[in-house]
Design a protein around this nucleic acid. Structure first.
Lengths: 125, 125
DNA sequence: TTTGGTTCACTTTGTTCA
DNA sequence: TGAACAAAGTGAACCAAA
């Protein structure tokens, strides 16, 4: 959160629900965070169409009723598409996670082996 | 549903039958959901005429007796025609489904091939 | 601790068929 | 007409890197 910690009651700038922190640059709730990540990447390949006039009000209750206006609002309050990891970046991330996991497991095994060795050593000494 | 989960006994706001969730913006039953989707789109091209005085009571038992009043009730309790997918939206949806199906099949084939390769590799090594 | 992603149960569309 | 089903979207709980 950095300099200005959010309080429990700070509202999501997109829908007004309870914010969980800064997501993609904007104080927002869990749901709008997930929504933006899922939908902002579709922009070139998918047509967002508002069934009404393109100015649906986005609230906790009605945010689900219009993808088009919800996404527009996300951008309007400043959410940044650049902060969504690209497919390549995500793949790199997975690699890192996998490597770290292996290291941890290796370390764990080693530790385990150490214990076994110690037990044997104790028995024979 | 989320925040306000419906209970098993919550009634359909149109006919009072057991609701299955929010359909087209309104807590409603399976039957009224299907009815609204089928009939709301006919509005400009088909005349709904009540055989009586236009104030038929809509209940589980009698809901089928007057399309006109049933549809009117749907709108009165707040069902939104906008939430019915347009023909274009439906077509887009079919495309997505087809694409996803292809992707899945492709992924499945690749995985299958991987297995075959692995088996061959194991045999020759 | 903050803020990215991942997962999965659930909701809400449409489609099909008796 | 309405029940059963298929599919995609939603959001809460969680994981991990920086």
């Amino acid at each position: 959160m950095k300099s200005s910690t959010i309080r429990a009651l700070d509202p999501c700038l997109v829908c007004g629900d309870k914010a969980i922190g800064f997501n993609f640059g904007v104080l927002s709730c869990m749901a709008c965070k997930a929504f933006f990540r899922r939908n902002a990447v579709k922009l070139g390949t998918y047509d967002f169409i508002c069934p009404k006039d393109g100015d649906c009000s986005i609230t906790h209750t009605y945010r689900r009723l219009c993808n088009c206006c919800r996404l527009a609002k996300c951008f309007r309050v400043g959410m940044q598409k650049d902060l969504i990891l690209t497919e390549a970046a995500k793949e790199a991330r997975r690699q890192t996670v996998a490597q770290n996991r292996q290291k941890r497991e290796q370390a764990s095994k080693t530790k385990c082996l150490d214990l076994v060795c110690m037990n044997i050593f104790n028995k024979i000494s």
